[in-house]
Amino acid sequence: MKTRTLVVNSVLAALYVAVSAVIQPIGFSSIQFRIPEMFNHLVVFNKKFFFGIIFGVFLTNLLFSPMRLYDIVFGVGHSAISLGLIILLAKYIKNIWVLLVANTIIFSFNMFIIAFELKLALGFPFLLTWQTTAIGELVVMAIGIPIIFALNKQVKFNQML
């Protein structure tokens, strides 16, 4: 890995943790809009952000999650699989908007991994948990699309690495 890629991804991971810890989620009813959740869209602009996002999820769970080891294994697993799929899809689809929507759907669908975690740890009913967590993820990731797009106009993620 190039030094620049390594350092930028490390700082991105730190930013993920910092934003998770400092900015309170914006909530409406049972769905919480967690700002770092939309960092998942960064990989659409540049696949090299993969490691930074994964590390951000890992460190946030390690440092702040009460369910630590569970959230590390399943949370990182969920992000890695979803990001991997979108990177794969990006080889065939070049339209950014389509990829952002696909990313939202992939992340939401893959919430079955988190539903399985909750079933394992707490005995929650799998299908109901999958449904509710997937709807929550779908809403926050969909809201994240215009925000990350606006952000990209200013920051130019695709030219960063």
């Binding site: 390594l6 700082v11 943790v17 910092a18 810890a21 590390f55």
Partner: peptide
């Protein structure tokens, strides 16, 4: 080694970026 280095750099920057986030907010 790269993963361990990434973790060290991230841990170094977390408090700085937390302060930065609060300051900008």
């Amino acid at each position: 080694h790269e993963l361990a280095l990434m973790m060290s750099i991230s841990l170094r920057f977390i408090p700085t970026l937390m302060q930065e986030t609060e300051k900008i907010s």
